[in-house]
């Protein structure tokens, strides 16, 4: 028993050593010798290495970090204070221009990814809150002069801590949203399609082909291929139920969006991949309020409304035009 524990401890040590960018020659030789010595060494190392590399561990770590972000553990808070201390130091040093070149920053990018089936809430180093949908990827750089996040995939609701001098910039493809402190939603519906809605304050929307436009509380804009194609004011924004976007409660309000966008939303909650078999169907305009957190219900609804056939296979959901239906 003691022996097993020792082997496990050694194996873990080797996993960590081999995970370093540089491994020196003597360590490598020692590793081979250790592996060659005993089949139990090899088995334990293989298991431990597989565990360290596994996606399941990544998911567990993301979950644990999300619960830490909700304030369960003191360490993260302490490190947040450390961040504050660091940025205070930054400003003190930035005061002296001569120093500025000496302290080339360690500007780490933190990346958050969520899998299909559910999202998470994260708290950034500046105190801003982000609700991230399922199947999303967000990278964050908090710099002393600017806060910058990039939404590579998915949808995010930002409640940005107000800082008078440090703008907060969200990039989604070539669309960017610039704010100081406010609450707004960014939905990256596809590579070239982004929807933005403001829940508090105002934001500036910038695309390569349009002049900057300012969106106020309740405004909603959609950018497709660098052009703003729709802009409307939602009179309910910020009132009653609308202090957070629908999707954070699992809903999606579609007004004239392609079917593929709706399916991508449902996909964020579905463990099984959903395949649309017909390109014409993917472009079909859809309107309505859908509870995307319940994939079966949505698929059932669109099956009736758009004459589709939905097939639930063991590991995939296929959607096809039903024979003779209007979509075929």
């Amino acid at each position: 028993m003691m022996r097993d524990m020792q082997i496990a401890a050694d194996a873990a040590l080797w996993v960590n050593r081999l995970d370093q960018p540089v491994i020196d020659t003597s360590a490598s030789a020692a590793f081979d010798a250790w592996m060659a010595a005993d089949a139990r060494h090899r088995e334990s190392f293989a298991d431990m290495q597989a565990l360290w590399h596994s996606d399941t561990l990544l998911q567990a770590l993301e979950r644990s970090e999300a619960s830490i972000a909700e304030g369960e553990a003191p360490v993260t808070r302490a490190s947040r204070f450390a961040d504050l201390r660091r940025s205070a130091l930054w400003f003190a040093m930035a005061g002296s221009a001569a120093m500025l070149f000496l302290i080339v920053p360690k500007l780490g990018v933190e990346t958050y990814r969520t899998g299909t089936g559910g999202g998470r809430t994260i708290v950034l180093a500046d105190g801003s809150h982000v609700d991230l949908s399922g199947d999303a990827e967000l990278s964050v750089r908090i710099m002393p002069w600017r806060r910058e996040v990039t939404l590579a995939r998915g949808e995010a609701f930002f409640d940005v801590a107000h800082e008078r001098w440090r703008p907060f910039l969200v990039k989604s493809g070539s669309t960017s949203v610039r704010v100081l402190g406010t609450a707004f939603n960014v939905d990256r519906q596809s590579a070239t399609r982004t929807a933005v809605e403001v829940y508090r304050g105002a934001v500036t929307l910038d695309t390569p082909r349009t002049q900057d436009i300012v969106l106020h509380k309740g405004d909603h804009a959609r950018v497709v291929d660098d052009r703003i194609t729709a802009q409307a004011t939602n009179p309910n924004a910020g009132v009653g139920r609308h202090d957070k976007p629908d999707w954070t409660a699992g809903w999606f309000e579609a007004s004239d969006v392609p079917m593929s966008v709706l399916i991508a939303k449902v996909q964020r909650y579905s463990l099984r991949p959903i395949r649309l078999r017909d390109p014409k169907m993917a472009a079909l305009p859809v309107s309505g309020r859908f509870q995307v957190s319940d994939p079966a219900r949505v698929l059932n609804a669109i099956r009736g409304a758009y004459a589709l056939e939905v097939r639930y296979d063991r590991d995939v959901i296929r959607i096809a035009p039903s024979a003779g239906g209007p979509a075929s």
Binding site: D19, W52, L57, L58, L61, E62, S64, E65, I68, A73, P74, V75, T76, S79, G108, E110, T111
Partner: peptide, 13 residues
């Protein structure tokens, strides 16, 4: 918590 923090930083970030 400290151990978890170290593991999160190393593996996740």
């Amino acid at each position: 918590p400290l151990r978890r923090e170290v593991v999160v930083r190393r593996r996740l970030r």
